[in-house]
Design a protein around this nucleic acid. Structure first.
Lengths: 365, 365
DNA sequence: TGATCATGCAGAAACGTGCCTGCCAAGTGG
DNA sequence: CCACTTGGCAGGCACGTTTCTGCATGATCA
C-alpha cells in the first residue's frame, strides 16, 4: 500500500526491527508510528494502542543514534575526572568520589539521563566519539583545556568545585572550604588543642589550596606557628610517610587535621608508633566520607563534604541548563559541610554509647 | 563548483561546523574530507594534510550521532550495576566496585571506548535512549531480564561473576570463590582456630551463595558445627549488629570470616566491646579491597578479589567480542584471589615491621 | 448549502556521516 | 595506437528517526 519499499530489508536485517517494519505490520505510516510511540500528534486512542501493541510484539526499540541525530539530544552527560599520573585516574578522595558519582548517576537517571565516564585528558578520540548534552567536571584546574573546548562547542558545563581563574563554566557547586576549616580548627582549639598541625597535599587544586590558606590564616589569627606536611596526595604510600613525619617533628603538634580520606588511619597508626594516646595526647580530625572512622579505636571525628548533595545538585543544575529551564536561583550553589564529632577530637568523651557503632547515613538529598 | 548548496546553512547553524563546511572551505568534496580524516581512500598526502588543516582551522568535530548511525558502532559500553532497594544503588563492596569500575574505565578508554553507567532495572526509557556496543554486567541474578533483553538484541554481554542458571552471556570473569574460602579457612585453622564463624549476607547473588556453601562444606569436612550470621548486606547498619550478634552467641567462635568490606571494622569493634583480643582470643579475616585494614589495630588479614584485574579482563573480553576478534582462549576467565595475611589471623605475629604501614598496591593489571 | 474547521493520517525533507560507484586523466604494456 | 591499469576525486545513496506540511473526510455553522 505504501510506496516505501520494505522489500529491500525484508523485515529486519541486523536482527532489529525498524520503525518501517512496525508501520508495515500495523498497516499505518511511519509518521503514525512515531507519533503513537512518542505521545505526539493527534491520534485516537485505538490507533495509539494498536501501534504500541504491534511495536511491542515486534520487539521494536527505536535507534538511539538516529534519534540523537535528529533531535540533537543524546540524553548523555559526561562525568569528567581528573587524571593523576599517567593511565589510571586515582581518586584521592576515593569514598568522596564514589559517593558523589553514585548520587549524580541516580539524579541523572531519575531525569532520563545517563552518565558517561570520561578522562580529563583532551583525547579528542574519545571525546568526539560520544554525543554529549553536557558535562560535569570534577575539580577543574585553571584554564582547563577540556572545559574551554566544551563551552566553545556550546555545551553546558557544571563543575564540582568552584572554577579557578576565569574558567567559563555554566554553573558550579562547592562547599565553603575555608569556613569549614576555620570552624573545624576552632572546634579543636576549644577541645584544648595548643598547636594544631595540618596534613595537606602538594597539588594545586582548589580544595587543597583553599583549605591550606584557611589554615595559614587561622594560624596567623591565633598567633600559632604553622606546622604542616605536604605530600603528593595521589600516592597511597606518601600519606603514611607524611603522617609519620608530622608526628616526628621537634615541634610536634598536639592536634592534627588531615585533608584527605586515608589520613585518619595513617595518623592513628603513626600516633601508636610514637606512643601517643588519642585524644589524650593528640586530637585528630580528617576529611572523609568513609564510615570506617566510626568504628576505629578511638572513633575519629570527620569532616563530611556531603558528596551526595553535591552530586545531585551538580546534575540538577546541568540538566536545567540543558533543557533550558530558567535557573530560578543563582548559578553558584554552596553546600554546607558537616563536622561529625567523635571521640578523637574531644578531651573528655561526652557520653558512653552502646548503640551500633556505625550511624546510618542520614543525608538523603 | 559543487552542486551541493551550502547556502541553506550558510556555514554553520548550531554553532558547529559540519563536514560540508570543511569540504567547501577546502575546495574538495565531502568524500575527500571523510577519507582524508579517516585515513581511508587513495589520496595524496598533500590533499590529506590540506583537508586536515582546514578541518582543524574550522574546529570541525565529526558528529558522533551521525557516525554511530552510519557505522553502527557507538564506542559506548554499558556498565550495569545491580540496584538494591529503590533509588540509589548501594555498592555493598564499595571499594571493590570502585576499583573495578576504575580499571574497566581505564581499559575501555585505552581501546577508544567509554563507559556508561546504567541501572539494572529494566527501565526501557534509559536503556533504549543510549546506543551501546556491548554491556558489562556486574553480578547478574538468575534469569536477569536486562541480560536476556540485551542478548536478544544481539549485543555482547560480559559479566563480572559467573552467570547463574542458564543466563546466556557472551563471556564471564570471576574468581574461584569456593577455592578462596576453603583456602582461607584452612589458613585460619592452621593458625589455631577451633571454631570458625561466618558473617554472610541474606541476598542470593552468586558470590554470597558460593562463599556460604563453601563454608558449610568445609565445616562438614572438618566436623565443625556451622556458626554464622546472615544480614542484608546493603544495609550499612545491619553489618555492625550482625557482627555483635555473632560474638554474643553462646557458641562464640574463636575466628571469624566476614564476606563484606565493612565486616572487619565492625567485628573489631564488637570484639573490643566483649573484651576479646585480636588475634589472641579471636582470629579475623574479611574480604575487602580497602587499604585501611593495613593500618588498623591490629592490621586485619583481607582477601582481595583483585578487582582491577577483573575490570580489565571484563572489558577486554567485551571489546574483543564487539570487534569480532577471535577469542584466542576460553570465554570464561578465572582471576586468582590473594590472601593478604596480616596480624589478625596469626596467633604469633611473624615479625615486627617498622616500615610504612600501608603497602603499595602492587597488582598492576 | 458552501465555507470553515477539527480530526486522522501519509509524504517527504532533513539530521551528518560513511562508503559504494563511477568518471576523468595519466601512465603502460602489447 | 589502443586496451588497460591506477591514482584522484565527485555524486549520491543509505543509516533510522523526527517533524513540517498537506490531503482527505466528516462535522459544524452562518
Amino acid at each position: 500500500m505504501s510506496r516505501t519499499d520494505t522489500t529491500r530489508r525484508g523485515g529486519r536485517q541486523g536482527g532489529r526491527a525498524g520503525i518501517r517494519d512496525v508501520a508495515a505490520a500495523a498497516g499505518v505510516s511511519i509518521t503514525t508510528v512515531s507519533d503513537a510511540l512518542n505521545g505526539k500528534g493527534r491520534l485516537p486512542d485505538a490507533t495509539r494502542r494498536h501501534v504500541r501493541e504491534v511495536a511491542e510484539r515486534l520487539g521494536y526499540r527505536p535507534s538511539a543514534a538516529a534519534r540523537t541525530l535528529r533531535t540533537g539530544k543524546s540524553g548523555l552527560i559526561g562525568l569528567t575526572v581528573t587524571t593523576y599520573g599517567d593511565e589510571p585516574f586515582t581518586f584521592t578522595e576515593f569514598a568522596y568520589f564514589a559517593e558523589m558519582a553514585r548520587a549524580a548517576t541516580s539524579a541523572a537517571l531519575a531525569r532520563g539521563y545517563a552518565l558517561v565516564i570520561l578522562p580529563a585528558t583532551s583525547q579528542h578520540d574519545v571525546w568526539s566519539n560520544v554525543a554529549l548534552d553536557g558535562t560535569v567536571v570534577v575539580d577543574p584546574s585553571d584554564h582547563d583545556p577540556v572545559v574551554t573546548e566544551l563551552v566553545r562547542q556550546g555545551l553546558p558545563v557544571v563543575s564540582d568545585g568552584r572554577p579557578a581563574g576565569t574558567l567559563p563554566v555554566t554553573a558550579w557547586v562547592d562547599n565553603d572550604h575555608e569556613a569549614a576549616v576555620l570552624d573545624l580548627l576552632d572546634h579543636m582549639a576549644e577541645a584544648g588543642a595548643r598547636r594544631i598541625g595540618l596534613l595537606t597535599g602538594t597539588t594545586t587544586d582548589t580544595y587543597t589550596r583553599l583549605s591550606t590558606s584557611a589554615y595559614l590564616r587561622w594560624c596567623e589569627r591565633v598567633g600559632q606557628d604553622p606546622v604542616y606536611e605536604a605530600y603528593p596526595a595521589h600516592d597511597p604510600c606518601a600519606g603514611a610517610v607524611a603522617a609519620d613525619r608530622l608526628l616526628a617533628r621537634p615541634d610536634r603538634p598536639d592536634a592534627v587535621y588531615g585533608l584527605f580520606d586515608p589520613n585518619g588511619t595513617d595518623l592513628l597508626a603513626a600516633a601508636r608508633r610514637y606512643g601517643l594516646r588519642v585524644p589524650e595526647d593528640l586530637l585528630l580530625v580528617c576529611c572523609s566520607e568513609s564510615t570506617v572512622y566510626a568504628a576505629t579505636e578511638p572513633p575519629i571525628t570527620t569532616l563530611s563534604l556531603k558528596p551526595r548533595r553535591i552530586g545531585t545538585a551538580v546534575v540538577q543544575l546541568l540538566i536545567d541548563a540543558i533543557e533550558g529551564v530558567a535557573a530560578d536561583g543563582p548559578l553558584e550553589r554552596v553546600i554546607p559541610t558537616e563536622l561529625i564529632v567523635r571521640t578523637s577530637s574531644q578531651r573528655r568523651p561526652p557520653r558512653r554509647t552502646v548503640s551500633a557503632p556505625r550511624s546510618p547515613s542520614s543525608d538523603r538529598p
